[in-house]
């Protein structure tokens, strides 16, 4: 067991954990996108950034890949972290504005405008599909190719791979191509329906009874409606 300082509190964590695991253990929420418990950490989406180090010299690291060490000072909710996180969401929306996962994140963290050129590339290169294919499905069919602005994910030589069993694991795990966001307007790119829309259902049903659940969730439950939830509890 080693001791770290997590958001100002001295906590004891297991050696070999990452910062993200330690935060999870102590109930501190850190948003993630390219992280999956069943796969090796990749540190590509930069959503799980936290600030480490004390004093004037702090730096941002991805918590899913950074192992804890004795005396480490971690802050998960500083202004710098929150601003960087918003920037990452903004950048990802500019690449894949039709992804519901990313649009939900935008609403959750209050990203209301995108200052970048919309590219509609539909792939944020999070590497989830590559990792699930290699590590869980034993397929090893797809991988990264080229580098820089030409980087993409495909099978070697872009031909049908003999190793691919069409299991669909890559599509299942993809945050950009599986769930489509119905919301975004052509002139704004950010959906923000979850922020602006006032759901009528929340007065009567909680998330588990949501009638839209089977249809893929209306998304309005993403934002925490604290006031309404309180009133609902009072009614009950």
């Amino acid at each position: 067991m080693i001791t770290i300082r997590l958001n100002g509190a001295e906590v004891r964590v297991e050696k070999g954990w990452t910062i993200l695991e330690a935060c999870k253990f102590y109930g501190i929420a850190i948003p993630t996108l390219c992280y999956n418990e069943g796969l090796s950490p990749y540190g590509g989406c930069r959503l799980c950034l936290v600030e480490i180090g004390g004093g004037l010299k702090t730096k941002l690291v991805s918590s899913c890949t950074y192992p804890v060490e004795e005396g480490l000072v971690v802050n998960t909710d500083t202004k710098r972290v929150i601003e960087t996180r918003r920037m990452m969401i903004e950048l990802m929306i500019s690449i894949a504005p039709n992804s519901k996962t990313i649009q939900d994140l935008a609403s959750k963290f209050g990203v209301t405008k995108v200052r970048f050129k919309i590219r509609n590339e539909e792939c944020i290169l999070c590497g989830l599909c590559v990792r699930i294919c290699r590590e869980q499905m034993d397929g090893k069919a797809i991988g990264f190719q080229n580098r820089g602005y030409k980087r993409k994910i495909s099978t070697p030589f872009d031909i049908r791979s003999e190793e691919c069993r069409l299991c669909g694991g890559c599509i299942y795990i993809c945050p950009a191509c599986q769930l489509r966001c119905q919301g975004p307007q052509p002139d704004t790119a950010v959906c923000n329906a979850c922020l602006t829309m006032d759901p009528t259902c929340l007065d009567h049903y909680d998330e588990l009874q949501c009638w839209m659940y089977d249809a893929g969730r209306c998304g309005t439950c993403v934002r925490e409606k604290t006031e309404k939830k309180k009133t609902m509890k009072n009614k009950l």
């Binding site: 590559v130 991988g143 990264f144 190719q145 080229n146 791979s161």
Partner: peptide, 12 residues
């Protein structure tokens, strides 16, 4: 080694 990994390296 996975073919996709060798191709990744060769194109990188």
């Amino acid at each position: 080694i996975p073919f996709s990994l060798v191709y990744h390296l060769a194109t990188f």
